[in-house]
Simulated assay, not measured.
Amino acid sequence: MSTIDMRGAAAVAGIAELHYRRGESPHGELRMTLQAILAACADAGIAPRELDGFVSYAGGGNDGSVIGAALGVDDVRYSAMMWGGGGGTVAAAINAAAAAIATGQADCVVAYRAMAQADTGRLGYAKYYYGPHYLAHGIGSPAQVCAMRTQRMLEHDGVPREAMRALVLAAYRHAQNNPTAQAYGKPLDEDAYEQSRLVTEPFHLFDCSRESDGAVALVLVSAQRARTLNQPPAYVIAGAQGAPGGYSARIDNDDQYSTAGFAGVNGRPGVADRLWAVAGIKPSDVDVVQVYENFSGPAVAALIDHGLAPSGPAAGSVLTVDNLTAGIGTLPVNTSGGNLGDAFVNGMNLAAEAVRQIRGTSTNPVPDAKLSLFIGGPMAPLVSSTLFGHEDAL
Rank of each mutant, 00 (worst) to 15 (best):
A217T: 10
G140N: 04
L387Y: 01
D285I: 05
V355H: 02
M348G: 03
A166Y: 08
R31Y: 09
V76P: 03
C208L: 01
T103V: 13
A58S: 15
R210W: 09
R274N: 06
L198W: 07
N266C: 10
V216C: 14
D107H: 11
C146F: 15
M379L: 12
Q144N: 01
A393G: 05
S317G: 14
C208Q: 03
Q151M: 15
R197S: 08
M1T: 15
G86R: 03
V216L: 08
A299N: 06
P244D: 11
C146W: 05
V236S: 09
G121T: 02
L205C: 14
R122M: 13
A70I: 06
G312T: 03
A36Y: 08
A279P: 03
Q35V: 06
R227T: 11
S258N: 09
L154Q: 07
Y172F: 15
D75I: 03
G61I: 09
R21P: 13
E162Y: 04
P160V: 04
N253P: 05
A100Q: 12
P244F: 00
A309V: 04
D189M: 07
T150R: 05
A106D: 04
Y292T: 10
T120A: 14
A314E: 10
A36V: 07
A91I: 01
V76E: 08
V289W: 02
Q256N: 13
E162L: 13
M6W: 01
L371K: 07
M348L: 15
G23N: 01
Y130E: 14
V265W: 06
T361L: 00
G347I: 05
G337I: 02
V219H: 08
E24A: 15
T330Y: 01
F262G: 02
V383Y: 00
Y129T: 15
T330A: 15
A114D: 05
A192G: 09
T103H: 13
P332R: 09
V236H: 04
L205W: 12
D252F: 07
A170C: 00
G124T: 14
I358E: 06
L71K: 03
A277G: 12
R49K: 12
V345P: 04
A171Y: 09
F295E: 10
P244R: 06
A171I: 00
T386W: 01
E353P: 06
F374Q: 07
A352C: 02
G131L: 03
H204A: 14
I15H: 08
R7D: 11
D5Y: 12
Y184F: 15
V55M: 11
G86F: 00
A352S: 10
Q117V: 15
A92C: 14
A92N: 15
Y130M: 00
L135A: 07
H306Q: 00
D254N: 10
A279I: 10
A40E: 02
V236A: 00
A39I: 05
